[in-house]
Amino acid sequence: MAAVSFRDVRKSYTPELQVIHGVSMDIKDGEFIVILGPSGCGKSTLLRMVAGLETITSGEIAIGDRVVNNLEPKDRDIAMVFQNYALYPHMTVYDNMAYGLRIRGLSKDDISVRVKKAADILELDKYLERRPRELSGGQRQRVAMGRAIVREPQVFLFDEPLSNLDAKLRVQMRAELQALHRRLGTTSLFVTHDQVEAMTLAQRMIVINAGRAEQIGAPLEIYANPATVFVASFIGSPPMNLVPRDGRLLGIRPEHLEPCAASDAMLTIDVDLIEPLGADILVYGHVGDRDSARVAARLPADALAQAGKLALRYDPANVHWFDPKSGLRST
């Protein structure tokens, strides 16, 4: 196990096209870090630079106390789980897991012990002689994890490994990943564009927008104190409401709004969409005309929601202020 650090890491695929604009971060030994951001923001690029599959244009990446910029992937002591799993189609599940161990020259017995143990953890014992195409999506996913586990690497790298699974399996695998991390305690970098996945898995997360790290911190900390407008509007479902006020942007989470008498209204919206979720109700509407800011409010399930004007109030303690020019938090 090892710490990982990024020191002003930059990446350009072509001289004109820079995709990572200087990321710095220290990941502690054994931490589970989620790299979160919208599609195309450079998450995979960042992860692949750690793996050694992409060169680092400038800056440094260190694993443990070694700077790995010029090391081959095989010398970095990392294991990666790909979005499409990248299982070797012509090999059995056993051979898929044993491949890297054989190359590293482990004895037959050692290999067998490690593969059996991983198969046991991942409940793959019955499938060791099968080929990948004879497995379900969830099982393939496990094999891909197994291939990473048996290597007992310093760092696990996951590139959206759950995005090809159906919703139910995804929730299940999320739990298993957490359990696995508790058990093995290996430093992990997990890329996703799904903020729910990020919130539930991360010990700390790094939110990326267009190749820049917008904020680094624990999920709840980021949720409670988004550092930028981007983070505020990316995290939360529905995300934070942002309403222009006196030349600044007022941010308020949907759950911090409550209905009130028209005379007490701090915010009035014209409700045009109501989503009863059972536990609560989401109502949406504009604060003014159609071009004005759109606001979502999470109301208790017994609230009387109807189309038309809705008066809302909030506790000023829950308000966040942002500077609309820089996009930064201003209080």
């Binding site: 793996a51 599959l53 081959e72 095989k74 294991a79 499409n84 990248a86 189609p89 190359i103 590293r104």
Partner: peptide
């Protein structure tokens, strides 16, 4: 798929 080759490279081949 390119990722197969990459996986093998990470596996040490």
């Amino acid at each position: 798929p390119k990722s197969l080759i990459e996986a093998a490279a990470i596996d040490g081949a």
